[in-house]
């Protein structure tokens, strides 16, 4: 009890402390500093609630399987750059295992796969991008499960969202502000990649939504997860 209270106290004071202290010490790059810190701190509630709640063992192992599958997917399709099943798997995890699991699947896939592909400041924003997609998928799961066209639309939209979030980091890390001219140029330059994201998300969704959905559903119903 005492320990968890301390945890929330730290969480409560950490944000203002980091914001005030950081923006004073790193005056020239305060926007970049705040962006990284606030994003990282915003991950904490997800991880802490996952730690605290008691889950069935199956849920943890299934989550690990989905994370591993998205990392393997990133490796398996190495011959087609940016054509990856990660987003589709994250969306399906969010839909069937819930918003929290969707976030964790997205964030952990980004973190783990970058140990193979190389870490960077962008890791935090890949975690944010995929994590957010997982959360949205979890929140909209009722509609997404029923309506296939909406699911495909959501997958396509996720491609844009992901691209926009990661480019946002690129611009802010360079300019220490949202330089709209550079942001638009970057988005335009990344358009071919974004289109590949969108196409691959839709294609993977078309191919995987049926089998993964059925199989996950079966396991979830059979073992009451």
């Amino acid at each position: 009890m005492k320990k968890s209270f301390l945890k929330y106290l730290i969480l409560f004071f950490m944000l203002p402390l980091v914001v005030i202290g950081g923006s004073y010490l790193f005056r020239d790059r305060q926007f970049v500093f705040l962006l990284v810190c606030v994003t990282l701190i915003s991950f904490l509630p997800f991880f802490l609630s996952f730690e605290k709640r008691s889950h069935r063992e199956e849920k943890i192992v299934l989550l690990a399987v989905m994370v591993a599958l998205s990392v393997v997917g990133r490796v398996l399709f190495f011959m087609l750059p940016s054509f990856k099943p990660v987003t589709a798997i994250v969306i399906l995890t969010g839909m069937y295992l819930g918003a929290e699991s969707g976030f964790l699947c997205g964030a952990l896939s980004a973190l783990l796969s970058n140990f193979f592909f190389g870490q960077g400041g962008f890791t935090v924003f890949q975690m944010l991008g995929w994590g957010m997609i997982g959360v949205f998928a979890g929140l909209l799961s009722v509609i997404l499960k029923k309506n296939r066209p909406v699911l495909l639309l959501f997958a396509a939209f996720s491609g844009f969202l992901y691209s926009m979030i990661v480019d946002l980091w690129t611009v802010i890390s360079i300019d220490n502000s949202l330089n709209l001219a550079r942001y638009l140029t970057l988005l335009a330059a990344a358009l071919p990649t974004t289109i590949i994201y969108v196409i691959s998300n839709v294609l993977f969704m078309l191919a995987l939504a049926g089998p993964i959905g059925r199989k996950l559903n079966r396991v979830i119903e059979k073992y009451e997860i």
């Binding site: 730690e51 994370v67 591993a68 490796v75 952990l108 783990l112």
Partner: peptide, 15 residues
């Protein structure tokens, strides 16, 4: 973060 670490460890073993 023991549970998160466990999930990641299992995922790493699965890869």
């Amino acid at each position: 973060l023991p549970k998160t670490a466990l999930t990641l460890t299992m995922a790493m073993k699965f890869i």
